[in-house]
Design a protein around this nucleic acid. Sequence first.
RNA 1: GGUCCUGUGGCCGAGUGGCUAGGCUCAGCUCUGCAAAAGCUGCUACAGCGGUUCGAAUCCGCUCGGGACCUCCA
Length: 492
Amino acid sequence: MQNQLVIYNTLTRTKEKFEPLNKGLVGLYVCGPTVYSDVHLGNCRTFISFDLIYRYLLLLGFKVRYVRNITDAGHLEGDRDEGEDKFAKKAKLEQLEPMEIVQKYTLGFHDVMREFNNLPPSIEPTATGHICEQIEMVKKIISNGYAYEVNGTVYFDVEKYNKEFPYGQLTNRQLEDLIANTRELSGQDEKHGRLDFALWIKAKPEQIMRWPSPWGWGFPGWHIECSAMSSKYLGDTFDIHGGGMDLQATHHTNEIAQSQACNHKAPVKYWMHTNMLTVNGVRMSKTAGNGFLPGELFTGNHPLLEKGYSPMAVRFFMMQTHYRSTLDFSNDALQASEKGYARLAAAVKTAENLKTSATSTSNIQELEKNCFDAMNDDFNAPILVSHLFEGARIINSVNDGKETISEADLVLLKKLMHDFVFDVLGLKSEISNTSSDNALQGVMEIILEIRKEIKSKKDFAASDKLRDNLNKINITIKDTKDGAVWSLTAGE
RNA sequence: GGUCCUGUGGCCGAGUGGCUAGGCUCAGCUCUGCAAAAGCUGCUACAGCGGUUCGAAUCCGCUCGGGACCUCCA
């Protein structure tokens, strides 16, 4: 383990030393998507942020069990436990079975995650696959006295819970304030308290997605699935629970309450929340209608986009902002990232063929330390990136013969660039001249040879035309002092 | 209304009480047949007003602006 990792814990609102409950092991749970529609870029940001966190924990040598759920049932519109089921509504809209909706958007989600080069979680449990566990948990909460049943629906008794535990601790709020901001219960409301929320919900007669329970046919409330699945796979108390900041006030607050009420233990040691992606300063969300779909971004097929951006350019764009800061989305910012990333990636490639000398003009060990220090400080990727550009500068300077590097330092430099650029930031090269197409390799060698002959005859008009035309089909030729080289750039 | 976050140079974004991340853009230079790439140099900063301090963009107060959560959303 390189030095000491520090994590900002939402629970205490401070940075704390990271000490896993079990030495060398990390239990990580992240709230996954509700698969009733396409994931937009804001959703992706959260998963990319936690992918970075997961990857860095792995680099540090931890054995990480990363659990990220798929919500495929029980998520109502509106958290008043009275809205329409999201899946049922969408199913009606698309004239499909609810589980067809689930399947369709789960597959889409996985495709997008793969495009962004996110590592798959260790376990990806679904709510519908854990109905029994959720029912058992609800039963236990009732027998522990923190929940009650009314007409087939089970509610969590927030006010009773709050007498023993600080219900609003995750958002630093007092119960009285929370109650003051909640509307009055109507006469027909089944809840005892204004803040009470459903653990189990009675199904309406027409509902397809329903299961038998001690309280009749119904389906689980949204919050209970995460509590049930996280404790099943990670234990009653585990290391890190993450999610978007928008889940903090309601979903995570209720998760803590449920788990505590059920298991008599605080479920999580470190709560981590990622900030939102904004468009023109306003949060990207499904309901605001300002969401970008990843596909639109890659193709540039969106009114707000001037062109398409590759998945890695977008990922790099996100890596240049800390996960707890909002990130504003714009063409200019995206273009800057695209170019910056191309330069960084090119340097990593250049490092493969550097000549070594007896001594180094740069301190590579210090550079390595700086990289670890940056990530150890609550996963500060933007600082890491700045150090990686220092690495790129060194590589390019050595390549130009302006600086030197020793054999040992080059090995270290190559390793750290590889570790941090590919393994931690999760980027992958999009430029290539090592095309698997042998025919193309051969053709390019012939073309460069012919162009060399043309150039030696000083027919620059012809050689430039060749270069320009190749450029149009995404083949770039550069004339270096050691001769011409070519590379294939990712097409749009 | 309540609970918070935030306002950095042309743009995006880090950051610590004093030593001014980084990327992109722009200008100049080196290299080059020209490009490209690369390197070097330069250019505009810390919303405003007070206060604490030897010293603050960084701490405190106020003003103005932006945003989030409290209602589903990663």
